[in-house]
Design a protein around this nucleic acid. Structure first.
Length: 689
DNA sequence: ACAAGCAGTTTTTTT
DNA sequence: AACTGCTTGT
């Protein structure tokens, strides 16, 4: 008879003796989630119901119940959410949560892959391709595979990259994707399949991983090497996942794998806030959670602590118009508050003046700039406003939209660093070679092939059958790379060497706007000083692209925290006292790309829902009545179809009038005063243009 | 054969 | 602002 061992079940410790008074600081539902014993739990948390707070307290609670911090994994979707959550947890238990592991799925997978790359046939210094890098690779391979493009249009490289990413995130085949989403490319289905195969093998040969590989290769590692999975997952006692509604198939499988030993999974999410369908987010993950994890519990948080009831009324109304019904009815105990205002402006200039003027008024009332946000659908929707804010000396930061590290000149400079780091990085080689005068795609490819044979001393210039037209610049390039390679200096200094070399190339390539780009490069040097080694710098930049902020902090306002401008996507999870949602136009919100599909339209509606629920006290939704397109001139716009027919008792229509005695736009909405302060005279600069 | 320059089109959202 | 396709120049 085998002996039996009985493991004592750990009594759930009362929270009395703990450092944090959980019962006082949390409501009943939150407390239940925070002190949950174990197993699989789904917490369905509406907007503003203290989702982050609950997760943070959960981490603290686990640590206080003597769960080793390093055995807790906290996965989030975005980098911002990850750092905010870890910071808050750290504050709560002064340092004891420091060793909690976590971050974005991609970053977490990267640390695993760095360690075990060899097991799946990759070098440990593999290069991470960002979206445009992989588009470039695909483009090069398209040339090699001799695509017959004489017929109809072949998809652009960026579209191909998006498609290749979609099939891997969703676990479907090219032809399935083409049939469902890209019927116009049906005849190229087979060609694209070949191209996809070529892309996959090229990455493997060259030691390259794109964003999707980070997830998929980790899964592959787990499948191929059960020992590795066992080693990793037995070191994990709790897996916590934020924003679960935005996870894709691969991420759900990762969660499952990581929790396979202890089975303690807490996922938190809100099906009404799923806004990453385009990236493969699978609502099925959250909707079918209890099927996937049998016996899973579902907890709900519905008490909203953020917004006034007026704002929630609008949010609830929006959800009620969705095709898919959401089981959500948020309630608040805050005062009713002002009705959200719906403000048509004559044109985009008026819209910008209105928003910036209101911001100044709220600031006079004592609301801090960083407690106000302007939200929009697309990164470029705020260009006009940015000009206006600069003119009024209102400091701001912008999140979302173009990333600094995606700008061509930044990529050029970083490619030099990448080549030094990994001389086999043919993507980076191609990029820097094509900067040379007289070198195009073909010549660059040929030079790269010649280099391959000589990886011992990669930056010694050997005489080869190079054409005299570019041999001098090639030699200079090698000298520069060799100089960086052979000296042990900090990344910032390496960057300086590259910048000296790159300066004339930049001026030749961008004669029109090189000064602006030089500023960006200086900005980059400032950011790089934080890093002491090149490898972590490159990894970090690849996974955490720097926001291209237009703020450039004005000296006199440096001490004032800036106003927030953000795409709706980047604002997820944040809250502000005052929110302006601008450019609420049909064709923008919903995007004109979504009108063909009901599911896509629903997502656009959820996007507006997310924007609206960011606001705590005041909400203004505006749009210009006249727009302008290049060469077509001005045209009449339509407001967002989701907002046009909302009853006036929920969303109040307002009008802007130009004040007679005062050269500025003011709000005149009949019975209700939108703002308590009187419109003040505007700076003279408003009068012109 | 290939690079460079020009004109016209196309552009979501993020790791 | 970047990509694609076309024309011109080396």
């Amino acid at each position: 008879m085998a002996r039996q061992f009985i493991i004592q079940s750990e009594a759930v410790p009362a929270t009395d003796g703990m450092d944090i008074a959980y019962a006082d600081e949390l409501n009943t539902q939150q407390l239940e989630a925070v002190t949950w014993g174990g197993g699989a739990v789904l917490v369905v948390a509406g907007a503003g119901t203290g989702k982050t707070r609950t997760l943070v307290y959960r981490v603290a609670y686990l640590v206080e119940t003597r769960v080793p911090p390093e055995s807790i994994v906290l996965l989030t979707f975005s980098r911002r959410a990850a750092s905010e959550m870890l910071n808050r947890a750290t504050l709560l238990l002064d340092g004891r949560c420091n060793r909690v592991r976590g971050g974005t799925f991609h970053a977490f997978c990267l640390t695993i892959l760095k360690k075990y790359a060899a097991k799946i046939g990759f070098p440990s210094n593999f290069t991470i391709l960002d979206a445009s890098d992989s588009a470039d690779v695909i483009d090069v391979l398209r040339g090699r595979i001799s695509v017959d493009t004489r017929g109809k249009r072949f998809p652009r490289k960026r579209t191909l990259q998006t498609m290749f990413s979609a099939i891997r995130n969703r676990g479907i085949t090219i032809s399935e994707l083409v049939e469902n989403s890209y019927p116009q490319f049906l005849e190229y289905s087979e060609t694209m399949d070949r191209l996809f195969q070529a892309y996959s093998s090229y990455k493997k040969e060259q030691g390259l991983m794109d964003y999707d590989d980070l997830l998929v290769m980790t899964l592959k590692l787990f499948q191929q090497e059960p020992d590795v999975l066992r080693e990793i997952s037995s070191a994990i006692r709790h897996v916590l996942v934020d924003e679960y509604q935005d996870t894709n198939r691969a991420q759900a499988l990762l969660v499952k794998a990581l929790s396979s030993v202890h089975g303690n999974v807490m996922v938190v999410g809100d099906d009404a806030q799923s806004i990453y369908r385009f990236r493969g987010a699978d609502l099925g993950n959250i909707l079918n959670f209890s099927d996937e994890y049998s016996g899973a519990q579902v907890l709900k948080l519905e008490h909203n602590y953020r917004s006034t009831q007026s704002i929630l009324d609008l949010a609830n109304h929006l959800l009620s118009t969705a095709r898919r019904k959401y089981s959500k009815d948020l309630f608040s105990e805050k005062l009713k508050g002002d009705l959200p205002a719906f403000v048509p402006a004559p044109d985009v200039r008026f819209e910008s003046r209105f928003v910036s003027q209101m911001i100044l008024q709220f600031r006079e009332q004592g609301i801090q700039l960083d407690d106000m946000a302007v939200l929009f659908r697309n990164g470029h929707n705020s260009y006009d406003l940015e000009v206006e804010l600069n003119r009024k000396n209102i400091p701001f930061v912008k999140h979302g939209g173009l990333k600094l590290s995606e700008a061509a000149h930044i990529k050029d400079v970083l490619a030099h660093l990448k080549v030094v780091e990994n001389p086999r990085d043919t993507v980076a080689w191609n990029r820097i070679l094509q900067l040379l005068e007289g070198v195009g795609p073909k010549t660059a490819g040929r030079i790269v092939d010649l280099l391959d044979a000589n990886t011992e001393e990669p930056f010694i210039f050997n005489e080869r059958p190079y054409s005299s037209s570019y041999i001098d610049s090639l030699r200079t390039l090698f000298t520069t790379l060799h100089q960086i390679h052979s000296s042990e200096i900090a990344p910032a200094e390496q960057l300086e060497i590259i910048l000296t070399y790159y300066a004339p190339l930049l001026r030749r390539e961008y004669p029109d706007d090189y000064p602006k780009r030089e500023q960006d490069l200086e900005h980059l040097v400032g950011l790089v000083t934080r890093f002491s080694d090149r490898s972590s710098l490159l990894d970090s930049l690849a996974l955490d692209p720097i926001d291209l902020t237009a703020s450039m902090a004005l000296p006199e306002s440096e001490d004032e925290p800036p106003l927030v401008l953000s795409t709706i996507h980047s604002a997820k999870g944040l809250e502000f006292s005052v929110v302006f949602l601008i450019q609420a136009l049909d064709g923008v919100m919903p995007s004109s790309y979504s009108v063909g599909s009901d599911d896509a339209l629903d997502e656009e509606l959820r996007l507006i829902y997310v924007a609206v629920t960011r606001a705590a006290d005041h909400l203004f939704i505006s749009y210009p009545m006249i727009g302008h397109r290049r060469y077509e001139g001005q045209y009449f716009t339509n407001p967002s179809r989701f907002l046009a027919d909302i009853p006036q008792r929920i969303l109040e229509p307002c009008t802007l009038v130009e004040a007679d005695s005062d050269p500025g736009a003011t709000v005149n909405n009949g019975p209700r005063e939108i703002e308590t302060g009187q419109p003040k005279s505007l700076p003279p600069s408003l009068v012109d243009s």
